[in-house]
Each structure stands twice: as C-alpha cells, then as structure tokens.
Design a protein around this nucleic acid. Sequence first.
DNA 1: TATGAATGAGAGTTCATTCAT
DNA 2: CATGAATGAACTCTCATTCAT
Lengths: 211, 211, 211, 211
Amino acid sequence: MTAEEIAPLSRVERRKAELRREIIDAAFDCFAEAGYHATGIADIAARLGIGHGTFYRYFANKRDIVEHVITDLIERLVATLTAENAPDAPHSLEEYRAQTVRIGIALADVFGEDPRVPRMLLLEAPGIDKEMSQRILDFYALATSLTAAYVGHGVQEGYLPEDLDVDNTARAINGMIMSSVLAALHDPGIDQHKLRLAIQRVMYDGIAGRR
Amino acid sequence: MTAEEIAPLSRVERRKAELRREIIDAAFDCFAEAGYHATGIADIAARLGIGHGTFYRYFANKRDIVEHVITDLIERLVATLTAENAPDAPHSLEEYRAQTVRIGIALADVFGEDPRVPRMLLLEAPGIDKEMSQRILDFYALATSLTAAYVGHGVQEGYLPEDLDVDNTARAINGMIMSSVLAALHDPGIDQHKLRLAIQRVMYDGIAGRR
Amino acid sequence: MTAEEIAPLSRVERRKAELRREIIDAAFDCFAEAGYHATGIADIAARLGIGHGTFYRYFANKRDIVEHVITDLIERLVATLTAENAPDAPHSLEEYRAQTVRIGIALADVFGEDPRVPRMLLLEAPGIDKEMSQRILDFYALATSLTAAYVGHGVQEGYLPEDLDVDNTARAINGMIMSSVLAALHDPGIDQHKLRLAIQRVMYDGIAGRR
Amino acid sequence: MTAEEIAPLSRVERRKAELRREIIDAAFDCFAEAGYHATGIADIAARLGIGHGTFYRYFANKRDIVEHVITDLIERLVATLTAENAPDAPHSLEEYRAQTVRIGIALADVFGEDPRVPRMLLLEAPGIDKEMSQRILDFYALATSLTAAYVGHGVQEGYLPEDLDVDNTARAINGMIMSSVLAALHDPGIDQHKLRLAIQRVMYDGIAGRR
DNA sequence: TATGAATGAGAGTTCATTCAT
DNA sequence: CATGAATGAACTCTCATTCAT
C-alpha cells in the first residue's frame, strides 16, 4: 500500500488498459448492433483494425468479453442510480418526489442517450445463455432492492404508509420504469417527458386519483 | 371461403396438422429449456422421435419454426387478455377494478403455470435476431394498446380522470405486470397474491395513498 | 441371440461400416505418410473424396480416429502373433525353433509388406501424446508376455534351462525382433533372411557359440 | 584455427553461450515432459524466466531448437559408448565380456538416471517429422556400426566365430539393449541387474545354453 | 540486446440444410 | 412422405514468428 503501488501506469500499461477498454466498447457496439451470436470475434477485431489474435491477448474467449461488457453496463447503471441520490436524503414526500424525478431523469439519460444500452441489457443479454439470463434477472432483483431502500426509507420517515408492501411496491415502480425504456426502444420518438409524468401520476395518485 | 375450404380435413391432412402442432410444441420446449441457439434441429426432431429431415417438410428452416412458436405464444396470450374481458364491459370503478383483478389472475395463470412461457417471450426471443426483437417490442406495443383500450374506456365512462394520459398510463400498468412476471422468474416461490395486491394498490391509490 | 441378430447388415449399414473402414485406412495412410500432427481432418477426407464434415459422423474427433487406427494395427499384429502358433504346441527344442522361425517370418510379413505399419507403430504413435505413448509401451509389454508364454512353455517342457529368466529373456528376444524391424525401416533393401538367421543364431547359440 | 578462434570468450560471449545451453536444457525438459507438439516456445522461455522473443535471438525457430536438443543427446550417448571403451581393447572373450558389461552399465546409467533421455529419443523425437525420424533411424544405424566394431574386432581377434554375421549380430545386441530401456520406461521399478544378466546370458549362451 | 505485443495462417469442430433413397 | 447421410460455410481459438520499442 505504498505510494509506488498507486504510481501512474507506464506508457505501455496505459496503452494496454486503453486497448482493453476499446475492445470492450467495440464488442458492445457489435453485440448491440448485430447481436451476440451474429457477432464473430473477427468482427470485433475488424472494428478496431486489430488482428483477431490480439483479441485473445486481452480476453479469454467470446463469453469472457460479453461478461465484461455486461458487468460494465451494470456498474454504470448502478452508479447512476446511487450517485448523489442517497435513499435517506429526503425527509418529506415533496423531497422524495423531487428525488424520484431526478433519478428518473438520470435513468432516462443513461438509457435514452444510447438506445444500445437498454437494447443490450434487456433484449440481447438474456438470450446469450442460461447464466447470463440469470445475471440479468439478478440485476432486476438488485434494482428492486435499490428502489426498495428508497421506499423503505419513506415508510420509516412516515411520509409513506406504514403498511406499504415495500419490496413489491419497489417491483411495481421498477416495472413502470422498464416499461418506459421498452416504449422508447419501440418508438424512439416517444415523448419521454409525458411518459415520466404519467408514471409519476400513477406512482403518487393511482390511475383514478387527482381531480 | 368456399365450401371446400371448410370441408373436414382428410385423415392424412389431420395427421399432418397434428405433427405440425407437435413440432411447434417440441420446439418451444427445447428453446425455452436450452435456448434458441443451443437447440439444434436434431434436438427438436429427437424429442419427437422423428427424423430431422422430416422437420424440413413442415417448416422451412430454424428461423421459421421459432417464428411459429412465438406467434403461437402471442396468440394465446392475446386470447387470454381479451377473452371474456371486453374493455367496454365495466361501468363503474368497482367493476373496472374487479375486471383488472380477473385479468391479472388470468395472466398469472398463463405465465405462472409454465414459467417457460415468460422465459421464452421475455428472455429468449428478443436475442434471436433483430426482426424477432422487433416482434417482441411490437407485442409490448400491442399489449399497451389493449390495456389502453381499458383505460380509455374508463375515461370515457367517466370513472377515470379525463386528463389521464391513456397510452402512457397503459404502459405503466403493463410495466408493473411485466415486473411481477420477471420477479416470479427470478424467485419462483414469490407470493404472487401479495405482489398482485401491491400492484393494485399502486394502481388505484399511488404509493402514498390510502391511510 | 436369435438368428436375426446375426442377420446380414442392411445395404445402408454395410455401406456405413465400409466407409468407417475406409476412413480408418485413409487416416492410417495419412498419419503414416505425413505424420499425425501434420495431417488434418481435411486431408483424410480429401483422400476419400468426402466432405470433412462427414468424418465427424463416423469419429468423434481427431484423437478418436488415431485411437482406432492404432487399435486396429495392434489387433492385427496380435492376431498374427497368436494365429496358428499356440505356445504349448512344440514339444522339443527343434519344434520350438521351427516355430520361432515361422513366427519370425509371419512378423516380417506383417511389418515388411507395408513399412508404414512399423513406421506408424514405432515412430509415429509414441509421439502423439502421453496416453498414446503409454499404449505403445503397454503393447511392448503385451508382446513380452506373449513371448514369455513361449519361453515359459519351453522351460516347463524341459527343453529350455529351468533357471532361465523367462520374462527378461522374452524382452531380449523381442528386442532383437524390434531391432530388425527398425533396420528394415532404415534400409528397406536389407537382407531380411540374413537378419533372421543372425537373430536365430544369437538366440540359440549366443554370439560366441557354434564353431 | 587462428589464435583468435581459440582466444578466451569475452564475458558477454560466455554469457551468450551459457544462455544458449540453458535454452537447450529447458527445451529438453519441456519436450520430454510435455511432448514436442504440446510445448510452446513460451513454455520454454517461461521456464527460464526470459521473454519468448529472446528465444529467437538464439535459435531460428522451434524446429531448430529440437534439432539441437537431439544432437546434444546423441552426442552424449555416443560419447558414453566410446569413452574409455575402445573396440580394440579386449584380447580375449573374458575381457570382451567384461567390456560389454561395463558398456551396459554405462548405458544403463545414461538412460536410467534420467528416463526423459530415452523418452525423448525413442518416443518423442521420431514423431516430430520425417526428417527427425530419419535422424533417429540414422542414430540406430550409427549405434549398430559402433557395436559392429566391437563384434568385428572379436572376430578378427579370433575369440568370436569367423562366420558370425557381424552387422546383424550387432543389430541383435542393440535390439536387446533397446528392449531393456523400453522395459524400464514401462516399468521404472524393474530390476535392471536381472535384465542385464538375462541379456548377457542370451548373448553368450543363447536361450538354450548353459546347464 | 531483450522484450512481449501484435499478428494471421491454419486447425478442429459444429450444425443448418439438402437430397438420394 | 420420411429419413438420415452427406456437406461445407463459418466460427472459435492457438501459437510460431515478427518487429517496434
């Protein structure tokens, strides 16, 4: 744990880490655009202009790279969901509402900026193999627990009903978000703002409430 | 629409239709259990004890059979969603609510009885290729329009607010249902009843409402 | 065990068995001529004018075919060594000598007729991998035990000294035979008859014996 | 043959020669243990802790190194066979016998001390390629001529029969030695002394002689 | 001089599809 | 009409060799 260990990487090491990063990105591009099974290692290498043997210096095999692509995606998403949005920050329903709006916008940014992200995660990844589909289901579960932390906090603080079914309510909320993501995939021109408003309304008033 | 077309099928024709049916079912079994790409035509044929050359007398190629498997699934689901649940049946919020409960139970039956159905539709199919993932997105859109018909009817009848964003609210509702299906895939032992109650509560009261 | 089970193979079955045989032979040709590692599955298939995918309908992989090639060779050799030469046939040193001459000639036939046989067995096979080299060593051991049966019989019958080290003498005899095989590989024009006479002389008189 | 050529090597040159030697030894280790084809250049380099690019500064390619490994082995064996055992030394059958015993023991030392030596020479090398298998056969022939020199000397001195087939007798003798080497490879615990005695007995008395 | 990153020829293997029987 | 033998395109992965640093 000396300073040396944190010393800046050598030029060669930097180049290696950089290429590794580029391969992950190129693989993501290929998988998201053509699909995992339709993509050959040669396609990934060609996109970078490197020999396909080089690929195997950085990743053990095709399964390995997609693992990294997905891990990368999930980490970015989880970072987005948790960054500057601690579950225990809000202390009133209004603050809570404001936070859910912020999170919704952040999510829409991640998913909406590059539609290949949700395409990869929701459409492509689960069909790769049993293990990967389990990983995606686990990711759903993780998202549920993140959302449940927010909901649970609201119950503890008293601005959400104490008899609320925290976990399942979290599932319902996440389902609405996922639905909006899929809607955007199906119809990229959809009005995301209206979509978000509708979800907020169901969340806070129910379909029959207000007015 | 001549008399001939409705004429009873000959014994041979019946046998052919029957085998066609069996091949679709066997293919569904294989695809749902092992995955589309991991399943070979030989696997499907072997499951039926027929030669794999025979397969090609009934379906043009591997892509063709999965097309039929999915079409079949979607038709069954749409039938469940529409059967005895006309959007214009309910005339009060109470009747509407009762109907959503009925539909929810029916859906849970279809999806819950055989987890391979949602597995195939939500996890396996979208990763097959671009065209198929589009079909699945189209199916989501269709489900949205079905739900939107119910919601829209409620608005017209007056028991739902007239300023409700019908389509997006439908998307939110469907998202909650999808989420419950995925939750069941991740954790088969989950309490479906509690899940349904939580969704109903969000739907009708919002997360902060009632008590 | 009815007559039916022994019933002649159908035309298709015969053709399959025949092709299987041809693949083994072609593989033997390739391996013996070019070497195991220098031979590709495509080479074997090309030699038969079949698609290389066809190869895999008959053998699991490259290792599998060489296994069969070697098994085949060894079986043929063992058959030669044991056919019409029961170890307990001779009852005097003269009969015994006559029998060793017969066996020697038979061996020379098998090995000499097609030099690819010893080339495959002695030069090519041991270098394939550890398992195969063990198989070849096991074959040497088997040959030792076959020869030892002859020598042991001679001791029991009394025409060989009772204090003879049966196993090691058998090893010595086999070594001389192997040496003559290698000599023929190195110099195909070598006088096999003279070679056999010299071995017989060492066997029965020692290098210093008889005049 | 100028003074310069015999001049002591510089420190750098000595280091180079040393590393060259180490590479040969490491290659021998790898080839003998894992087999020629299963060994990569990287394995050899790794064993020495050098970069595998460095290998190519000392040897032209993979084939080149194995060539040197084998040359090295053969030279060591020939040195053993000829050292202090001039074919013209013995002048009676007893002296001759004593010498063959000495040579046998020396050979057993070389082969027995490190079983990788015979493994490399007899099992691994011939399967590398045509040229190498020819080299091994040539080595057998060389060994034959070495042994034949002894036998021939015995004939000339008169203590071996004048009508002895010198070359083929030499082949027979070498075959018995090779057999004992293979026996030790198959069964490392074998009693080498008994084996040597049995070979001596066949050599000098024949299988039927003495007692 | 030593290094190891990059390379791509080439190998084994799979499997959807065809078609003669 | 049913069959499964035959096929070869296509893919993943290895590793000897080169060469810029």
